[in-house]
């Protein structure tokens, strides 16, 4: 008898891969960037489906396929999740202490830098009449 297609393994794998690669999309929105709810949910759904598929494959191997490729899918998914967790919960938090950065009540250090038109802009030029917001960022790449 031909064994049945074990769809939860395939769908679970695709969802888990989506959990990693959709980060670029979800990072556009503060709610799903500050904490990666959406990606963790996708990984969770993927893991549940893969487990269902593996139980089928190993529990009823005469009915369902997927012992070998199911194990491979599950292992790859686990590595993808480990990579995601390492990047999100470790690498992104390796921010310098900046202990000497200006604190509330301190004078902001002077500067003069070229703007996008090559015109020099000093902190003093920005302060009147109501002060300035200075945003330091990692750059555009």
């Amino acid at each position: 008898m031909k064994r049945k297609w074990n769809w939860p393994l395939w769908v679970g794998f695709v969802v888990a891969v989506g959990g990693l690669f959709s980060y670029e999309f979800f990072a556009e929105f503060p709610m799903t960037r500050d904490f990666p709810w959406a990606n963790l949910l996708l990984f969770g759904i993927g893991a549940a489906l893969l487990l269902v598929g593996l139980f089928r494959a190993f529990g009823r191997p005469q009915v369902y396929r997927g012992k070998v490729f199911g194990s491979i899918f599950a292992t790859i998914s686990l590595f993808l999740f480990a990579f995601f967790a390492y990047e999100i919960f470790y690498v992104l938090r390796q921010v310098p202490l900046s202990a000497q950065a200006p604190r509330v009540g301190a004078k902001a250090p002077e500067f003069s830098l070229p703007d996008q038109n090559g015109k020099s802009v000093a902190l003093g030029d920005l302060l009147s009449p109501n002060g300035a917001v200075l945003i330091f960022y990692r750059g555009h790449w």
């Binding site: 900046s98 509330v104 902001a108 990692r138």
Partner: peptide, 20 residues
């Protein structure tokens, strides 16, 4: 590169809000 940081500096040049 720069780490992300935001400041509000008032008209006198004093930092009034810092977000690190």
């Amino acid at each position: 590169i720069a780490r992300p940081a935001e400041f509000y500096v008032d008209a006198s040049g004093t930092v009034r809000w810092a977000n690190l």
